[in-house]
């Protein structure tokens, strides 16, 4: 590795080993970052061991400060709160920011109705909300779709 890539190698802590979290972890490792993934379900961790050999895996509750420390949060440049529970992601973001001074926190919004909470008030630097990202695309797609002939004005029939 060159010096330049060394400098940009980040330590990222991902919490939540579901489809989203594990996909993010794999991608970041492939890009050359150091990644730790935390999940409280030991069967999830066991399964990921085979799929993500280059990711450091830790089993435990990410909402508990002691577990976050064990997972190396004090060395983390970025925390990705990626569980499927919004309240868990908010608590993880808050702890990362307030208790451990992590400089960048990215959090996943599962239910867009909770999106208003995912701001710096809860220690979130960047919110990832799939529905909010998709809706404009769907709107655009709907607007540009051809109209059903039965609904079209008579002159265009």
């Amino acid at each position: 590795m060159t010096n330049q890539t060394d400098k940009r190698r980040m330590h990222v802590l991902v919490t939540g080993g579901g489809a989203f979290g594990s996909y993010v972890a794999r991608d970041l490792v492939d890009k050359g970052h150091e990644v730790t993934l935390l999940d409280e379900d030991s069967s999830v961790i066991a399964e990921l061991k085979e799929r993500l050999p280059n990711v450091r895996l830790v089993c435990g509750d990410a909402c508990e400060p002691r577990i976050l420390e064990e997972a190396g949060i004090l060395r983390a440049d970025v925390v990705v709160a990626a569980t499927s529970d919004d309240e868990d992601n908010l608590v993880i973001a808050l702890l990362s920011h307030k208790e451990f001074d992590v400089s960048r926190v990215v959090a996943r919004v599962n239910d867009p109705r909770n999106g208003w909470l995912f701001t710096d008030w809860w220690g979130v630097d960047h919110a990832l909300s799939a529905p909010d990202a998709f809706v404009p695309m769907v709107e655009e797609f709907v607007a540009s779709a051809p109209q059903h002939p039965a609904e079209a004005p008579p002159e265009t029939r």
Partner: peptide
């Protein structure tokens, strides 16, 4: 849920 209690309590208070 402890975490949902944390979130709603903090929302109520702050």
């Amino acid at each position: 849920g402890d975490n949902s209690n944390i979130v709603s309590a903090r929302v109520a208070r702050e």
